[in-house]
């Protein structure tokens, strides 16, 4: 029992680190744009499809496929930003979101046009059997995911808090109008944040898909969902929050899967998410002395 708990927790943290990266990408976009990019996962999926295409057509190895995947995700992200976010300013946040959903449908169909079968093989990054530490099984490629996630988080944190660009980014996230008055090109900041998020998502997606060794068009929806849920669990809009949300989601899922099976696992996750969201409202609405906002 104790062993199961430990093994589940380790597995959960490893999967959760991929969720954390997806959530970081979402947070970056939402923080700067105050808008939801539903096409986030599908952009990553398109990157992975291009990677697979390179693999199948030209027999490229894992490193090239990984690079193509990340670059493909960035290219798709660029397309989504230009079409759904850059031209819609002001109050049109819902329009941006719905447009990004329309592009999701577009990207999914594009993927099935590129490669029409339901699933395709994706080259593994590390093909070696799992090893054991203190009785806990660890897969090398999952460990790589965890390492990449930690590196990405540190890099992002340094970028946001220690660089000139990070300052402009934070100013834009806090108050767009004021940032503009300070001479910050908020539109350019938005685009760069968007592309950075796509690269981060591409990296996360590539690691997940390489560990699964297969890709399907459903991956887009999966990535959007996991990233969104992790971001909301962590409390929307902060880097540590996204990381904690991702890890929490991974651990809860791992235990849920082990003890209750897949259906109840999902039920548990959504119940947890719902509770987190409602309790935050409760702090404002339930306590008599607290702020009441219309």
């Amino acid at each position: 029992m104790a062993h199961d708990l430990a093994q589940n927790t380790v597995d959960g943290l490893m999967t959760g680190s991929a969720y954390a990266m997806l959530a970081l990408g979402f947070t970056l976009i939402f923080g700067v744009m105050r808008r939801l990019n539903l096409s986030y996962g599908p952009s990553i999926m398109i990157g992975a499809y291009l990677g697979t295409l390179v693999h199948l057509q030209f027999g490229m190895g894992a490193a090239v496929v990984a690079l193509v995947t990340v670059l493909g995700a960035v290219a798709a992200g660029f397309y989504v930003e230009r079409l759904c976010f850059a031209p819609m300013r002001g109050q049109a946040a819902t329009a941006s979101m719905v447009a990004s959903f329309a592009i999701w449908m577009q990207l999914e169909e594009l993927a099935t046009l590129l490669l029409p079968r339901h699933s395709y093989p994706f080259p593994a990054l590390i093909a070696r059997p799992p090893f054991e530490i203190a009785g806990i099984l660890i897969r090398a490629d999952r460990l790589l995911t965890l390492g990449a996630a930690i590196a990405a988080m540190l890099a992002l944190w340094l970028l946001v808090h220690r660089s000139r660009f990070g300052l402009a980014l934070r100013a834009t996230a806090r108050d767009r109008a004021t940032a503009r008055h300070l001479g910050i090109d908020v539109d350019r900041i938005g685009l760069i944040a968007f592309l950075g998020a796509s690269a981060l998502g591409g990296l996360a997606g590539m690691l997940v898909i390489a560990a699964d060794q297969q890709i399907t068009p459903m991956f887009g929806m999966w990535a959007t969902f996991k990233g969104l849920v992790a971001m909301m669990l962590g409390g929307l809009g902060s880097i540590p929050g996204a990381v904690i949300g991702g890890l929490l989601l991974g651990v809860v899922e791992a235990h849920g899967q082990w003890f209750f099976g897949p259906q109840l696992r999902d039920l548990l996750v959504y119940a947890l998410l719902f509770l987190c969201l409602v309790l935050r409202a409760g702090i404002g609405a339930g306590v008599p002395s607290a702020e009441r906002r219309i």
């Binding site: 849920v229 909301m232 119940a271 719902f274 969201l277 409602v278 409202a281």
Partner: peptide, 27 residues
């Protein structure tokens, strides 16, 4: 419980609710 939530918070709460509903139907 959710109408005092704003924007994305409500959207996500409604999504979580709907997914729970779907799983309950599956069971």
């Amino acid at each position: 419980p959710t109408f005092r939530l704003r924007g994305l918070y409500f959207a996500m709460a409604s999504l979580a609710f709907a997914e729970m509903m779907r799983i309950v139907l599956e069971l």
